[in-house]
Structures are given as C-alpha cells and as structure tokens.
C-alpha cells in the first residue's frame, strides 16, 4: 500500500473504532464514566474502567462512531476541550489508585470550532501534555486509526506508543499539508509520502515502539493476544518505581529526533 492508501485505510468508516476494541477486549467488565466535572461530557471521548484479567485498568478512547447517527453524536471523533479535560480527570484518578491507563486514539484532530477555542482547546491539550509526562502510573497508547496532530498527542504522552499496521500519525493531514505548501490539495498523496506518517515510518523514526497486526472484527484469538501483550507491558511498567517510570517516559520523548542534531 502507498502512504495515501494507508491514510484511506485509517479513515475507512468500516474499520473498528474504540468502542469495538473495548467491547472485544473487555466486554463484560467495562464501566463507562462520564464528564469533565467542569463543563460537559464530550462524547468524542469514551472512557471508563475495566479489568484486564485481574488488573484494574482505566481506558480512554477517542470514538468516531460506527454509523452516521453515532458519528454525529461523537462529533466524528473530534474532541473538544472538555473531552481532553475528561481524559485528564480520569488519568489523575488512575494515578490516585495506581492503576494503568490504556488510551485508544482515532481522530482526525482536535475540533477546530468557535466554542472549542473559547473554552481553551490549546490550554486543554497543553495541560494534558504536561500532566501525562509525570503521571505516576503506567500509560500505554495504541493508535487504532487516525492520529491527527495535537488532538492525538493529547492522549499519547505515554510510556509506549503502538500503532495498528494501517493507522497513521501526523502533525497535519496530507490534504492540509498539500494545500498549504503547494496550494493544491489534490497533491495529498505526495504529501502523505513526504510527511512519513505510516506505522513503519514512525517505527523507523523511533516514535512508536510496536506495529500491531490489525485484528479482524471476528477474530477473537487476535484480540486475546493483543490483550496479553497489553497486560505484559503494563505489568512490567507497574513493577517499576514511579520515579523511574516517569524518568523513562521523559527520556523517551527527550531523545526522539535528536540523533540528527548537530551543534
């Protein structure tokens, strides 16, 4: 597949969304929690608690919706500031009870609307970046579709970041990049190549730790092995002293891209 075909696959309306992953991995144990306690409950963020085998877990996902009605309700997976604040509230709660956090990211980006700006979209994302960096509990992020810029990063300042093989992660959409740089959004395929936004690109750049084979909806065994992989990773990080954990997280982001710098 070309980079742009991967972008299309990541946006495919038929692919699994965050609630699908939650249902298949945690069906009976998931309890959804709502609201940021400040303004509203943002339905673009689906969050709650579940048991991962015998490990309590906080799950935070960005949900695009699986049909037109759901997509409208979920604002097409474009979170508002209250969505990021709801996510942060539940991360701080997870820290309090020292349970790990799993984030499932699938968004074209944070919502660019008047209300979102008025309620501090930039501030909400910035606060998540700051607080996640020192969150005293393990955090794992999996990109399951689109990873759109700051709106995705706000749930991805984690100990490890994994990508589904057909997911993408980028600072800007290829269409946006092509129209700004080349005044021609039809050059999106070239932009997708240039931006290096596929899972393999990001693995090569040291931005993600793992590429995960895309599980099929009906393949229970694949979800089971994904669950086991998540569990092993979180257990390993849960065993670390929290200052070591946050030190490693800082070092993880600290080193990205620095190999190319010259003094």
């Amino acid at each position: 597949m070309t980079a742009y075909e991967k972008v299309m696959a990541a946006r495919d309306a038929k692919k699994l969304t965050a609630v699908d992953y939650i249902a298949r991995m945690f069906s009976d144990s998931f309890i959804e929690l709502h609201g940021d306690r400040r303004f509203a409950d943002d339905k673009a963020i689906v969050a709650g608690l579940a048991m991962l085998y015998d490990m309590p877990l906080t799950i935070i996902g960005i949900e695009k919706g699986r049909n037109t009605k759901e997509r409208v309700e979920r604002n097409f997976g474009q979170a508002q500031p209250e969505g990021y604040r709801k996510a942060l509230r539940l991360m701080k709660q997870a820290e309090k009870f020292h349970r790990p956090v799993l984030c499932l990211v699938d968004t074209s980006g944070a919502y660019p609307g008047i209300g979102a700006e008025e309620r501090g979209q930039g501030q909400a994302i910035a606060e998540n970046l700051m607080e996640m960096m020192t969150l005293k509990t393990p955090v794992l992020t999996i990109l399951i579709g689109e990873g759109g810029s700051g709106g995705a990063l706000a749930l991805a300042v984690s100990d490890e970041v994994w990508m589904m093989e057909n997911s993408v992660y980028s600072v800007i959409s290829p269409e946006g990049c092509a129209s700004i740089l080349w005044k021609d959004s039809s050059k999106a395929p070239q932009a997708a190549e240039a931006l290096k936004m596929t899972a393999q690109d990001l693995f090569d750049l040291g931005v993600v730790e793992r590429i995960i084979r895309q599980p099929k909806a009906e393949d229970a065994a694949m979800f089971e092995s994904l669950k086991m992989l998540i569990c092993r990773t979180l257990e390993k990080n849960l065993a670390l002293p929290t200052d070591r954990l946050t030190e490693q997280r800082y070092a993880r982001f600290r080193k990205i891209g620095t190999a190319h710098l010259t003094q």
Partner: peptide, 16 residues
C-alpha cells in the same frame, strides 16, 4: 510541516 511527526513530538518534549 516539513518535519512531520518530529515537529509534533516537540510539543510533548517541551511540555515535559
């Protein structure tokens, strides 16, 4: 944009 994802990662690094 010309630094792609590495540009995005600066947001996390500086915030840290």
């Amino acid at each position: 944009m010309q630094e792609g994802i590495l540009s995005l990662m600066q947001m996390a690094k500086t915030s840290g």
